[in-house]
Design a protein around this nucleic acid. Structure first.
Lengths: 240, 240
DNA sequence: CTAGTGTCGTGACGCCGGTCACATACACCT
DNA sequence: AGGTGTATGTGACCGGCGTCACGACACTAG
């Protein structure tokens, strides 16, 4: 098979080496075989739109490789990024299950490999494979949990600084760097996008970073950020 | 059976008349019978706490009668009400499925009847009854959808007025009053609680109501609120 | 080399809304 | 009546942050 957009395509779920790492994909062989028959392996370039908020659900998108930006947006164009999806996540799941419109927009950040399954096929698959149905419930719980965190961050924070500090700590905890004295993390997003993640303006984000650098809490090295004073950052995140 | 807290207890799910109205409860007889065997019918007074955010999940609570306030709260005591659950809703579902801590706090507003099911029993029940498992997925989708709405309201609104207007319109649409020229709705919550629903302060809510009354958009009749100018309210909700 | 585009940095201004501090109103209890 | 508790109104203050406006770089295209 060709490698569009510079991707190494994973041809079959049955032989996929990352299966056990991906929550949804770790299914018994019979279910996996059935899934194999209804899925369409597809590849997308950077900045491709998988689906748009408000669309009727066509089906689910299992993300195999690459990252996808999930966002909601207001009529005036103001955008809020809910999360950056990683491989193993199933996108458009809740809409496909409930039949309601997609509640958010999914757009690739990197070139991505995606397994698409049509809604009717997927629903039939769920009826026939109760293991898969339970996995779906688990995935949805996970998503709900995420949404609750987002609500907490947006609704209970007193300042933009608090939200930014929370975001940085969360990122550092995902890289396995959290244990270190001075965790490092790569800033893969622009200030604009960070602003959209915490529901504030681009200028505020720049100002906050400037302030934190001045106070020796963080330090920038190119596009990597070093957290020099984790304690101070936690104070910012907790406190008002 | 006794009627604690002035409730008319629904003894058995099999003979429950409201079953078809409640999304989760509409199961085939075999599953319902199995559910009947593992559930505990319980009753709670007003202001009882079903579970608290952060607790390890004990199990699910199927709300049969009464309303339950679902909220998250910050370390400083600031509280955000996510929604008021109505009969038919399953509470603590996502935590019970995923095994993670309850992500919010559930507290009764009215005297309530609740069917409780222990976590182990419920998980076993799901494995054995795939219909029920699918219902769970549907319920979780519903919850996720709600959470997304909350995120949109909190994250993409420009003002407290906008959020209040959205809330009022949403309420009026639930009472079947939305079609009417001048929908009425009962304000069952205090200004304090409304403030906690839209993430603002109590004083702001009173001021907003005062302003809307002055501008003839709404009118209070005791504890019922009449929306006199739906168009103006929609402008408030959409616009800046 | 220059023009165009996207990201970052920073000052000035103004307003929304949080907070504090009271006043008022209505309940309920003894 | 009087006291206590809870819900509602309303004024004054002021700090955070959104918005506008502009300048500094970096990178690509031509």
């Amino acid at each position: 098979m060709l490698s569009p957009y510079g991707l190494d395509i994973i041809e079959s779920c049955l032989t996929c080496k990352m299966r056990s790492d991906h929550i949804f994909c770790d299914l018994p062989t019979s279910a996996l075989q059935a899934f194999e028959n209804i899925k369409y392996a597809t590849a997308y370039p950077k900045s491709a739109v998988l689906f748009v908020e408000g669309q009727a659900p066509r089906g689910i998108f299992v993300l195999c490789k690459g990252r996808v930006k999930l966002s909601i947006c207001a009529t005036d164009g103001k955008t809020l990024i809910l999360k950056i999806a990683e491989p193993g996540e199933v996108l458009g799941l809740s809409a496909t299950v409930s039949g309601k419109a997609y509640e958010l927009t999914a757009e690739t950040i990197d070139p991505c490999q995606v397994n698409f399954v049509k809604r009717e096929d997927f629903l039939r698959f769920l009826k026939e494979h109760s293991d898969a149905c339970f996995k779906v419930a688990e995935q949805l719980s996970e998503k709900y949990n995420n949404a609750c965190h987002e609500v907490r961050s947006l609704g209970l924070s007193h300042s933009a600084a608090e939200k930014l500090a929370k975001l940085l700590l969360e990122w550092s905890s995902k890289n396995g760097e959290s244990a270190k004295q001075e965790p490092r993390l790569k800033l893969a997003l622009t200030h604009e996008e960070i602003a959209q993640m915490i529901g504030t303006s681009r200028e505020t984000v720049t100002r906050l970073f400037a302030d934190m650098k001045k106070r020796q809490i963080v330090q920038a090295k190119g596009s990597t950020l070093i957290i020099r004073n984790k304690a101070a950052l936690k104070v910012l995140a907790t406190n008002n």
